[in-house]
C-alpha cells in the first residue's frame, strides 16, 4: 500500500491539491479565496495531466533524427496542459473583474454579506 502510494505520489498530490481547492472554493466566504481555490483545482489538474505524460527515462520531445520514439515523453498531455493554462488564466481574469465590480457596488468581498445586501436592496426597490 505504502509502495503504491509512493509510486503514484504525483497523482496523490494532485488529488490532495484538488480536494484542498474544492473545500476552499465551497467553504470560504471571501470571493478572492474562492478564486484561489479554483486556481488550486486547476493546478491539480495540470499536475495530473503532466504526470500522466511522463515516461520513465524519457526526455523532452525535442526530436532528433534516428531516435526511437519511446525515448521521449508523451507530447499530447503537454498540449492539453497548455490549453488548460490559457483557459485558467482567462477565467481567473474574468472572475477577478467580476469580483472588483461586486466590491465597487457592495464594498465587501464576503459572499454572504453581498448576498444579504443584494437581497435587502431588492426589497427596497
Amino acid at each position: 500500500m505504502l509502495e503504491a502510494i509512493l509510486q503514484q505520489r504525483y497523482y496523490i498530490t494532485a488529488v490532495l491539491l484538488f480536494t484542498i481547492g474544492f473545500v476552499t472554493l465551497f467553504l470560504h466566504p471571501n470571493l478572492l479565496k474562492k478564486i484561489i481555490g479554483l486556481n488550486l483545482m486547476d493546478t491539480a489538474v495540470f499536475l495530473f495531466l503532466a504526470a500522466m505524460g511522463y515516461v520513465e527515462g524519457g526526455v523532452a520531445p525535442m526530436l532528433e533524427e534516428g531516435q526511437e520514439w519511446t525515448a521521449y515523453i508523451n507530447p499530447v498531455p503537454g498540449g492539453l496542459v497548455l490549453t488548460g493554462i490559457v483557459v485558467a488564466v482567462s477565467t481567473t481574469a474574468l472572475f477577478l473583474a467580476l469580483t472588483q465590480r461586486l466590491y465597487r457596488r457592495y464594498h465587501s468581498l464576503n459572499l454572504d454579506e453581498i448576498l444579504i445586501l443584494a437581497r435587502s436592496g431588492e426589497e427596497k426597490h
Binding site: A4, I5, Q7, Q8, R9, Y10, Y11, I12, A14, V15, F18, T19, A51, M52, G53, Y54, V55, E56, T70, N74, V76, P77
Partner: peptide, 19 residues
C-alpha cells in the same frame, strides 16, 4: 480519486494506454 489514482498504471511506466 485516491482509489482511482492507486489503480492507474504506475507513474512513468512505458506500457500505459496513454502512449
Amino acid at each position: 480519486f485516491t482509489a482511482v489514482a492507486l489503480s492507474l498504471p504506475g507513474f512513468g511506466e512505458t506500457d500505459v494506454p496513454a502512449l
